[in-house]
Computed example of a mutant assay.
Amino acid sequence: MELLLSNGGKVTETDQHGVTPLGVAAEFSHTEVLEILIKNGADVNAQAPNGDSVLYDATGTGNTDCMNILLENGANPNIHNLSFQLPIHRAAYEGHYQALRTLIPITTRRALRLSGQSPVHSASDGGHTHCLELLLQSGFDINALLAPHVSEIYGDMRKSPLFFAVSNGDKMCTEMLLKSGAQPNLDPLSCLLVAVRSGRRAIVKLLLAANADVNCYFTAVTDTVFPTAMLYCIKDEAMMQLLLNHGLDAAKCFDCSHEDTLNDFIILYATLLCVIKYSY
């Protein structure tokens, strides 16, 4: 590095991906190279075309030595990338506990508000209960909701940290979140419906025990009052029985706001047979 720099090498030169030498050094945890590049004028707040900062790259490795070198030389932990992710989100998602501890006190609430997402979402998505515990101990809201500009990125319109754990089928994270006060009825598509649709009975039981609304609806699926949970488990006897035992309103299967047709009658008749069979 010193030989190249002494012969005209430029610290601002980027590779084919638009990443500076400092970004590459951070990504591969080369602390000594970081120091040499910074000494020769490298920009500690340089960003790649996707908005990833050098500190964001360093955080991805979990190497706190690299992170501290950058921070001591003026790296800003409050620069988000094009996906509205901050270094603290990266640390939480990757499960880098020490990196997360470093970033929590220096990440501003304003930066988090502008990003539209909480590191609690990231830790839930990554499945890291130890990072979740640290964030909750540090005062982060377990029921924080994604801002609309982030939520709309997802086709399911998710909002809560709990939704990430449930949609990933992560029983351990789901249980930890619920025990810590996560509310199961905050998302347009209920966490319970996600678990029922994927056949994850253990998670369904956890959600029902936490008072998830068994008679919730997802209007994007149907414009009737036919119970959405019933719709998702019509071929799963054990799941249907579980839901019925927890108050699923089977009578709603026979309420129809549309004109009666032969099709409607056949559907209702088949449903009646199912309900009668599974109720006994």
Rank of each mutant, 00 (worst) to 15 (best):
M176L: 12
G181T: 08
G181S: 10
L178H: 04
A202W: 09
A182R: 07
L208A: 03
S180E: 12
A209M: 11
G199L: 13
A209I: 03
L208T: 00
P188T: 10
D187E: 10
V194P: 02
L178W: 05
L177Y: 05
L206A: 04
S198R: 14
G181N: 09
C191H: 04
S198C: 07
D187R: 06
I203D: 01
K179Y: 08
Q183H: 14
N185Y: 10
A212D: 02
A212T: 05
L206V: 02
A182L: 10
K205Q: 15
Q183N: 15
V196C: 14
L207P: 01
L208S: 00
L178P: 00
N185H: 11
N211S: 15
S198H: 10
A209F: 01
L193P: 00
P184L: 08
K205D: 12
A212G: 13
C191A: 13
N185C: 07
K179N: 13
A202C: 05
Q183A: 12
V194W: 06
N185K: 09
K205C: 10
L192Q: 05
K179H: 13
V204F: 01
G199Y: 05
C191P: 15
L178G: 00
G199I: 03
M176H: 14
K179L: 14
K179E: 15
A202D: 15
K205G: 02
R201M: 13
R200D: 14
P188Y: 07
G181V: 09
C191W: 02
S180C: 14
R200M: 10
G199H: 08
L207A: 05
C191L: 12
V196N: 01
V194N: 08
L189Q: 11
A202S: 15
L206Y: 03
R200G: 01
N211P: 03
Q183C: 13
M176V: 04
L206C: 14
L208P: 00
S190Y: 07
K179I: 07
L192E: 03
P184G: 09
M176W: 15
I203C: 00
K205L: 07
R201G: 10
C191F: 03
R200T: 08
V204T: 05
L178I: 14
L186T: 09
V204M: 06
R200F: 05
L193W: 04
L193V: 05
K179F: 07
L186K: 11
R200E: 12
L177W: 04
S190W: 05
R200L: 08
R200K: 15
S190H: 12
A202Y: 11
N185Q: 09
D187F: 06
V204E: 00
L193Q: 10
R197F: 10
V204W: 00
Q183P: 01
